[in-house]
Amino acid sequence: MNAYVPGIRRNPLGVGLLTAVLALWVLYTPGVEAVLRFVFPGETRLIYDRSPLTRFIGEHLALVAVGGVIAIVLGTIGGLIVVSPIGRPFRDVVLRLANFGQSVPSVAIMALAVPSLGYGSRPVLLALVIYSILPVMVNVVAGVESVPRSVVEAGRGMGMTRAERLIQLEMPLAMPVIMTGIRTMLVILVSAATLGAVVGAGGLGVPIMSGIGSFNNAVVAYGAVPAILLALIIDQAL
């Protein structure tokens, strides 16, 4: 499906550096204030001071982790069902729906889930899961189908059962494609989770939104920089 794979991946030095910067930004507030004062000399209020940044990044990570794990588990199961003989008839229709899912903004799902789930992290989690199950599924399907037919046929011919073929041949060979899907999904989750602030789920979106609301670019940057760092770290580390 995705034909273009960029060259540079898994740069341990870069990941370490980014993580160090992120840790400093979150833990060493005076330093952050000094940087922001330098970049935004005009602003009197430099940081979001009603809660520490550790809380927001904690909430953010929790949303991404919980949403991601649920999506990986359900998406993998779903993808495997769709490539199995039982679920085979649904393959095309599921891929079509996955494509359709792209056109629904994640924040719209959050907004629509509020009446039944209330404000807070639950509508956001629902949106994150719905939004990321399908990309995981699509990549599981693409990964399993990318395994050469001759390999699976050889396994079958030597007497491997369906489960043995899946565990010993198809899953290991599909892993690179599946991992690409999971990485993309987690990056999307970091982004979508910033929007969760709209329905009161907390996260790094809170300082960003607060800064936007008060036309204070320093406060926006105070929340935006760690969000970007987080996404970059996930993208580079996986």
Partner: peptide, 28 residues
């Protein structure tokens, strides 16, 4: 290719709201 696709790929990774937030002072 390295320069163009590398930077576009980086842009893809930026969380949307944070990206907008960072663009505001820059464009300002």
């Amino acid at each position: 290719e390295t320069a163009i696709m590398g930077s576009l790929n980086l842009g893809q990774v930026f969380p949307a709201l944070a990206f907008v937030g960072i663009m505001m002072p820059i464009l300002g």
